[in-house]
C-alpha cells in the first residue's frame, strides 16, 4: 500500500553533512597535525615524520600543570555552582508560590542572555581595587579589594557565568518530581527530610548530572573569564592552546594540547560520573523497592 519510504535518517542528512564538513573534517585534520612537529622558526607544522613526541611534550610539567590547574578550577566551579544553585532551584521548583515561577525563571534567564564577556567585565568593574565597592569597603574599615587578577576572581567569575546553566536543569529536575509524589510520601508517614532524601533527590538525580555536565564541560574550555578576571595569572588550557596557534605558531603542539583537552574532559567527566554513581550507591540500596510480596504474607 505504501510507496517507497525515505530511509529513517533522511531528515538528519543535512545536519550530518554540515557537521561532517565543518566539524569532523577539520577536527580530524587537527588530530593528524598533533602527530607532526614544528619545522624550524617559520613553519607552523609538518607531518612528514609522525610521532607521539608532541603528546610527550604536553605531559611535561610546564604544560601539564596548566591542565591540572584548569581541572581544579572547573571542578571547584562545578561544585560551587551545585551548592549555590541547588537550593535556589529547589526553592523555585518546590517552595516558591507557583505563580511566581515564570518571573523567577525570567530572572535566571536574563543574566544567561546577557553577553558573557560584558557580564564578566561587570565583575572587573566591581572588583577593581580603586572602584567604588573597594572604596565603600575601605570606608567601613575593611581592607581594599585586591582579588582582581587572582585565582579567586577567576573562580568567582566562573561560578557567576555558569550558575544559570546549573539552576535551569536542576529546576526542571526538582519540578518533575511533582507535588503529588511528595504529598504521597508525607501521607505515608515520611517526614520532610526523609521525603527529600528518598523521593525528591533520587528522582532529581538525572537533572543534577545534566546540570553538572552543562557547567563542567564548557568551563574546561573557557578562557575568556580567566583572561578578563585572571590577567596573566589565571592561565587556563584554552589560553595555552590559543597561544600556540596565535603567537608561538606551533600548530603541532597546539593540536596535541587540543586533543589532550578533549580526552581529559571526556575522561574526567566519566570518572566524576562514576564516582557520583558509586557515592550514591548506599542511597540507591536504601531506596530499593522490592516489589515481590514477602512469602509469609502471600501464603
Amino acid at each position: 500500500m505504501r510507496k517507497a519510504r525515505l530511509p529513517g535518517f533522511a531528515l538528519a542528512i543535512p545536519a550530518w553533512v554540515w557537521l561532517a564538513t565543518f566539524f569532523i573534517a577539520p577536527v580530524a585534520v587537527v588530530f593528524y597535525y598533533s602527530f607532526g612537529y614544528k619545522p624550524g622558526l617559520f613553519g607552523t607544522h609538518a607531518t612528514d615524520r609522525l610521532s607521539l613526541d608532541r603528546y610527550v611534550e604536553v605531559l611535561t610539567p610546564t604544560f601539564f600543570e596548566t591542565f591540572v590547574a584548569t581541572m581544579w578550577i572547573a571542578l571547584a566551579g562545578t561544585a560551587l555552582c551545585l551548592v549555590i544553585g541547588g537550593p535556589v532551584a529547589y526553592w523555585m521548583a518546590v517552595k516558591a508560590p507557583p505563580s511566581w515561577r515564570g518571573l523567577l525563571l525570567a530572572l535566571v534567564l536574563v543574566p544567561f542572555w546577557t553577553n558573557f564577556l560584558v557580564r564578566t567585565i561587570g565583575w572587573q568593574v566591581i572588583l577593581a581595587p580603586e572602584g567604588w565597592m573597594s572604596q565603600a569597603a575601605q570606608a567601613i574599615g575593611l581592607p581594599a579589594f585586591d582579588i582582581l587578577y587572582t585565582r579567586t576572581a577567576v573562580l568567582l567569575g566562573v561560578v557567576y557565568n555558569y550558575l544559570p546553566l546549573m539552576i535551569l536543569p536542576l529546576f526542571v529536575a526538582f519540578d518533575r518530581v511533582g507535588e503529588p509524589l511528595r504529598e504521597a510520601s508525607r501521607d505515608l508517614g515520611a517526614n520532610r527530610l526523609r521525603t527529600f532524601w528518598r523521593v525528591t533527590l533520587p528522582l532529581a538525580q538525572p537533572g543534577i548530572v545534566v546540570g553538572m555536565l552543562l557547567v563542567y564541560i564548557p568551563l574546561m574550555g573557557d578562557y575568556i573569564t580567566a583572561t578578563v578576571l585572571g590577567g596573566a595569572k589565571g592561565n587556563m588550557v584554552g589560553q595555552m592552546v590559543a597561544a600556540q596557534f596565535q603567537t608561538a605558531q606551533n600548530w603541532a603542539l597546539g593540536s596535541a594540547m587540543a586533543v589532550t583537552l578533549v580526552i581529559v574532559i571526556v575522561l574526567s567527566a566519566a570518572v566524576v560520573g562514576g564516582l557520583c554513581w558509586l557515592g550514591t550507591w548506599p542511597l540507591r540500596r536504601a531506596n530499593r523497592v522490592v516489589l515481590d510480596a514477602p512469602e509469609e504474607v502471600t501464603a
Binding site: 535518517f9 538528519a12 550530518w16 557537521l19 565543518f22 566539524f23 569532523i24 573534517a25 577539520p26 577536527v27 585534520v29 587537527v30 564541560i217 564548557p218 574546561m220 574550555g221 573557557d222 578562557y223 588550557v237 584554552g238 592552546v241 590559543a242 596557534f245 600548530w251 597546539g254 593540536s255 587540543a258 583537552l261 578533549v262 574532559i265 571526556v266 567527566a269
Partner: peptide, 24 residues
C-alpha cells in the same frame, strides 16, 4: 551514531572548534 556525533560536537570545547576551523 548520530547521537554520538552530536555528543562529540557538544563536548568539544570552543577553542578546539576554533583552532581546527581556521586552517580548514
Amino acid at each position: 551514531w548520530f547521537v554520538g556525533l552530536l555528543i562529540l560536537v557538544s563536548v568539544t570545547p570552543e577553542i578546539v572548534d576554533a583552532i581546527s576551523l581556521l586552517p580548514w
